[in-house]
Design a protein around this nucleic acid. Structure first.
Length: 878
RNA sequence: GGACGAUUAGCUCAGUUGGCAGAGCGCUGGCCUCACAUGCCAGAGGUCACUGGUUCAAGUCCAGUAUCGUCCACCA
């Protein structure tokens, strides 16, 4: 496709360009990876977003960073694969669907398991394409022909296979254990799925016969089966081992007192009531001391029959009632307000209830040891390094992973219970009869934790358990890019399962990026209403500007604050590039690349090529080290402040008023080649605008997407050119500075004399013209020059530069003006000082007014100082 | 309770191996100079949180303090 060569608009219009190129890239198959092609492989799997979700800032950052790496590697000649896909997100999706049903006045039980699952699939079909479309809008160069879903038949097969293998290895088992139960979602939650929230509560001191103890959960008193104190607590030694008769709300109960180190003698009274059925610590104490489990709160969050007269009450209602009753009976010593962290369901924020139930677990300890070793030995490299500590800590303290969930949306556990003999059989294929007794079987009702399937993602998406070319070429993947909030949920599980199942790490690098926050640094959340929609940003400023903003802000280790102003700045950058391209493209008449190559390059041409080489080196080096912001900054600084601010201004001379045809050709050649290379350098960051401009350049190829990524070759760094240009730039800045100080209009040409330091004669003689044209000056170079009268002086290292002001400004008038200004500044200083000196002003005025006055004082003093200096510049004899 | 991070210009933040303190935005002054006012030129603005130490040299390394933040954790 060639862009029409109609007049180019002076403002860049992103939407038209973005819509034009993405379909072209996709149709031509640039995104597709061929595992049999000869290049070195580079592979990435996307952190699969929730299938029913839509693109938020976190996705935008995460996928932009991946796309930058992937596009760069693809251009660099790697056989590059970026596997896209989505996650079924078990509990999250089920919660959404239940809310939908609730809006219709229904519950999932009204539908039944099958109809509910059907309904989720329908919802998935409806909304499942949204996030994929949005990723395309972002420019993500995923291989869409390999899009996967965690509940695809292939991935489901992988899930069953892994489950069976781990079962056969004895790593999966069932256990009665105290779990975190969400009474609303009606499912068990893993440790990670429980969030802590600070809540106000009452700390109730209850009399237990001769003892007193404190609790925030008086309702669990009904489930108490013992008391415990710390073994070294002298206050209570006499009670240890005794059985107490204790008056209670249900009459007298008997309680055995034990000593257990889990009790903190310094907290409360140092006595703990042991409720093994409703508290994880008590469960452990109970196991150690053989206390029976009394379940007084059911799966529905209501009191059970064992709660006697409280049966059927909601657990919180029961708490209020039981406290009332105990007060009446005089069993309460006192109540204190208490603030503590309470566990809530991470999806619906319901207070979780610790309950004993039978669940499926993975014994992850041996897997964790392997995963720990892989990081320690550097087979997995975590960037930034600090995260490996967090990873280590978690892996070292890992506990069994509860993988069963009482949900209807997810991978059903491939286990069958025999109705006759009660035996359990785990199988890759559905069972219809008990393999041992032939009796009828029923599949386990539970589904797997959603992270079980995403833990297999790096190899299940490549075709495992089959031995595919994709798997052989692209596993292990090259890098995993993710935010730290799923380091444990996902990254850790992938590391463990990849090592165990594949015998090799799932990825060589892990790059952990920050979270995106709003302009005030607040975490974005729907309830706070501070969510910035990436689609709105893309629409408003263009996708390229939005992507570049994310990359430019993605410094390691710190959260990103995004704001309109920021994106606007990079929108301007895109516009700057657009206009630089317009300048180049509108001055190419007569350009012939073959002839131009032979034209001798000027100093500026050599300089800009050298600077470009430095930029290329910086971008490559920074991308290699995942220093995205530094990479972005390198290309930004080069393109705007070197190419545009200096080179384009210099190039106008040879373009508009060439001294010779070859000078013009050389300039055109530098313009085209430097711009073309810069576009390729920038393409991974700003894919759309770079393609659009690149296609308009002479000699453009098929697509910038498949053009080579710039490299630095020997000889491109030109130290001499850089040194000489630095001298030119310094001289130009000096003249401009004097012009500004003396308020000389830009139109006036200034008489300038340079007295070069010994050895710099040739340099300044050669560049006098250039300095003159950039600074609007007539430059004379004279090693024997003395500073003229009435001249402003600038010191350039060992050289000196004089601007003769005699014929340019009316020196007497200028001196009078400066004198006046000085007096005015001095008056202002005196006035402000006086004002600030008056205590009543300082006391009465608001702090910001006083601060402002101080600021003004400072400014006026500065002005005063500067003006005096200006006078000093003009030599005697005025 | 434990761990980690942050503290640098008015604001938001970079600062890699210890070697002249930077960017963007904002601010001040001047410019609609034939690519771009979404622009150009010039400029102001810093006790690098605090205290002590190591060093020829510290924003950077060490010890401590303060404030803010995040994660982890079974003090009921």
């Amino acid at each position: 496709m060639t862009a029409e060569s109609a007049p180019i608009p002076d403002r860049y219009d992103p939407s038209a360009v973005e819509q034009r190129w993405y379909p072209v890239w996709e149709e031509r198959g640039y995104f597709r990876a061929d595992p049999t092609s000869p290049g070195k492989p580079f592979s990435v799997v996307i952190p699969p977003p929730n299938v029913t979700g839509s693109l938020h800032m976190g996705h935008a950052l995460n996928n932009t960073l991946q796309d930058v790496l992937v596009r760069m590697k693809r251009m660099d000649g790697f056989t590059t694969l970026w596997v896209p896909g989505t996650d079924h997100a078990g509990i999250a999706t089920q919660v959404v669907l239940e809310r939908q049903l609730a809006a219709e006045g229904k519950t999932k039980d009204d539908l039944g398991r099958e109809a509910f699952a059907e309904r989720v699939w329908r919802w998935k079909e409806q909304s499942g394409g949204t996030i994929i479309r949005q990723l395309k809008q972002l420019g993500a160069s995923c291989d869409w022909s390999r899009e996967r879903f965690t509940m695809d038949s292939g991935l489901s097969r992988a899930v069953r296979e892994v489950f069976v293998r781990l079962w056969e290895e004895g790593l999966i088992y069932r256990d009665d254990y105290i779990v975190n139960w969400c009474p609303r979602c009606q499912t068990v939650l893993s440790e990670l799925e429980v969030e802590r929230e600070e809540r106000e509560a009452e700390f109730v001191y209850i009399k237990y016969g001769p003892l007193t103890l404190g609790t925030v959960r008086p309702e669990t008193k009904l489930g108490d089966t013992g008391l415990a104190v710390h073994p070294k607590d002298r206050r209570y030694t006499e009670y240890v081992g005794k059985t107490l008769e204790v008056p209670s709300v249900e009459g007298t109960v008997t309680m055995r007192v034990v000593a257990d180190a889990a009790v903190d003698p310094d907290f409360g009274t140092g006595v703990v009531k042991v409720t093994p059925g409703h508290d994880p610590v008590d469960f452990e104490i109970g196991r150690r001391h053989d206390f029976p489990i009394r379940t007084v709160i059911g799966f529905d969050g209501r009191m059970t029959a064992l709660a006697g007269k409280y049966a059927g009450l909601d657990r919180f209602e029961c708490r209020r009632r039981i406290v009332e009753d105990m007060k009446t009976l005089g069993l309460i010593e006192r109540i204190e307000p208490y603030r503590h962290a309470i566990g809530v369901c991470y999806r619906c924020k319901t207070v979780v209830e610790p309950l004993v139930s039978k669940q499926w677990y993975v014994q992850v300890k041996p897997l964790a040891d392997e995963a720990l070793k892989a990081v320690r030995e550097g087979r997995i490299k975590i960037t930034p390094r600090v995260w490996s500590k967090t990873y280590d800590h978690w892996m070292e303290n890992i506990r069994p992973w509860c993988i069963s969930r009482q949900l209807w949306w997810g991978h059903r556990i491939p286990a069958w219970h025999c109705q006759t003999d009660g035996s359990i059989h785990v199988s890759r294929t559905p069972l219809t009869a008990c393999p041992t007794c032939g009796g009828p079987v029923r599949q386990d009702e539970d589904v797997l934790d959603t992270w079980f399937s995403s833990g297999l993602w790096p190899f299940s998406t490549l075709g495992w358990p089959d031995d595919t070319p994709e798997l052989r070429t692209f596993y292990p993947t090259s890098v995993l890019v993710t935010a730290f909030d799923i380091l444990f949920f996902w990254v850790a599980r992938m590391a463990m399962l990849g090592l165990r199942i594949m015998g090799d790490v799932p990825f060589r690098d892990v790059y952990i990026h920050a979270l995106v926050r709003d302009a005030e640094g607040q975490k974005m959340s729907k309830s706070k209403g501070n969510v910035v929609d990436p689609l709105v940003m893309m629409d408003r400023y263009g996708t390229d500007a939005f992507r570049f903003t994310l990359v430019a802000l993605a410094a390691q280790g710190r959260d990103i604050r995004i704001s309109d102003e920021r994106v606007e700045g990079y929108r301007n950058f895109a516009n700057k590039l657009w206009n630089a391209a317009r300048l180049v493209l509108s001055n190419l008449d007569g350009y012939d690349a073959r002839r131009a190559r032979k034209a001798p390059p000027a100093l500026a041409d050599r300089w800009i090529r050298s600077r470009l080489a430095a930029a290329i080196r910086a971008v490559r080096e920074n991308l290699r080290r995942y220093r995205f912001n530094d990479a972005a900054s390198a290309v930004y600084q080069f393109l705007w402040h070197e190419f545009c601010d200096w080179y384009l201004e210099i190039a106008k001379g040879p373009l508009y008023r060439p001294a010779s045809p070859s000078e013009r050709l050389a300039t055109q050649h530098a313009l085209v080649t430097v711009l073309e290379t810069t576009l390729r350098l920038l393409h991974p960051f700003m894919p759309f605008i770079t393609e659009e401009i690149w296609q308009r350049l002479p000699g453009a190829g098929e697509s910038i997407m498949i053009a080579p990524y710039p490299r630095v070759t020997r000889g491109q760094l030109d130290a001499a050119a850089e040194r000489d240009m630095a001298a030119v730039m310094e001289a130009v800045a000096a003249v401009r500075n004097i012009r500004g100080e003396m308020r000389i209009t830009p139109g006036t040409s200034l008489p300038v004399t340079i007295r070069p330091a010994p050895g710099d004669d040739a340099l300044f003689a050669a560049t006098a013209g250039l300095v003159g044209s950039l600074a609007r000056a007539e430059v004379r170079v004279d090693p024997g020059a003395a500073r003229p009268q009435n001249a402003a002086l600038a010191v350039l290292g060992a050289s000196e530069l004089y601007v003769d002001l005699a014929g340019v400004v009316d020196l007497a008038a200028e001196r009078a003006r400066l004198d006046k200004e000085i007096r005015r500044a001095a008056d202002a200083v005196a006035f402000i000082e006086g004002k600030l000196g008056r205590p009543e002003f300082v006391e009465r005025a608001p702090a910001e007014i006083v601060e402002k006055e101080r600021q003004r004082l400072h400014e006026q003093r500065e002005l005063h100082r500067k003006l005096e200096a200006s006078l000093g510049w003009i030599s005697d004899g005025v």
